[in-house]
Design a binder for these strands. Structure first.
Lengths: 138, 138
DNA sequence: ACCGTTGTAACCATTATAGTTACTATTAAA
DNA sequence: TTTAATAGTAACTATAATGGTTACAACGGT
């Protein structure tokens, strides 16, 4: 099965670092903590920036949070890095045969159920803040 | 973002057909309703069979449910077609730098949260049966 | 002006997906 | 016993997302 990209977990990692070390969090430094290529970090930082979560200083380097850690939820991060216009976790096959009872109903009926399932997952993500996460580090 | 495969929705479609038309549900017939290649259906049927949800009759053709429609949940189907040993919806980056406070904690802490999020989604899937789904067709 | 940094473009290898062709095995019916 | 329809599967393909990489321009404090 294709899993949800590590962009998400790397983004959470990145924001945690910025929260804990407000200054000196350059892309290279974060890459060193995540253990990946700096460009991967810069790409993700760009998404976080676009989502209004961080401010990145070009030239001088470093980043800072634009919201307090207790105001940033995992859902915010999830949304920031999952680049799709519509947030559709499940993909449903299209072009079913409308001459068939199942074919002409399955998309609509399944759509409702899966949207619900996705929704409860996102609600759960929204219940955890960056703050809570960091407080569990030891 | 990479979405969850249409195998899932096609599998639900397939089971709905078998439930409604207990006889004569050959792979070609189902493929005609789903509007895809018969081999795609046969592959998915193989997974449903392996999961103990259906009985497929080789030679003569056709399939039948091994459980009542009100005993088959969306979670059962989801599990049947998402071929991975561990059910990990979210992928977390590995090899973080353990010399960093965030690096050595992020995996464990995030793991807990994401497992929870996945869990509530699956619980929601488990609340819908094939029976309920079919009753919404019109 | 210099140097470290950000922002991107471009490229690549890997992987999952979904469709396709082709073939064998199975089973009922002629 | 032969035939026809079907299941089961292997092999191949095209497409797309991912994540890593190199390269380079733009930026900004010292």
């Amino acid at each position: 099965m294709k899993q949800i990209s590590t962009r998400f977990s790397i983004a959470v990692h990145t924001l945690s670092l910025i929260a804990i070390i407000p200054n000196d969090c350059t892309g290279d430094f974060i890459a060193g903590s995540v253990n990946t290529n700096p460009v991967v970090i810069r790409r993700i930082m760009g998404m976080l920036k676009k989502a209004g979560l961080v401010d990145v200083r070009p030239g001088v380097g470093g980043a800072s949070l634009l919201k307090a850690p207790n105001e940033i939820t995992l859902l915010d991060v999830y949304r920031a890095v999952n680049v799709t216009e519509e947030n559709q976790l499940f993909r449903i096959h299209e072009d079913s045969n409308i001459n068939c009872l199942v074919g002409r109903n399955i998309e609509r009926v399944l759509q409702e159920e899966l949207r619900d399932a996705q929704s409860v997952m996102e609600t759960r993500l929204a219940q955890t803040t960056l703050d809570q996460l960091i407080s569990k580090f030891k």
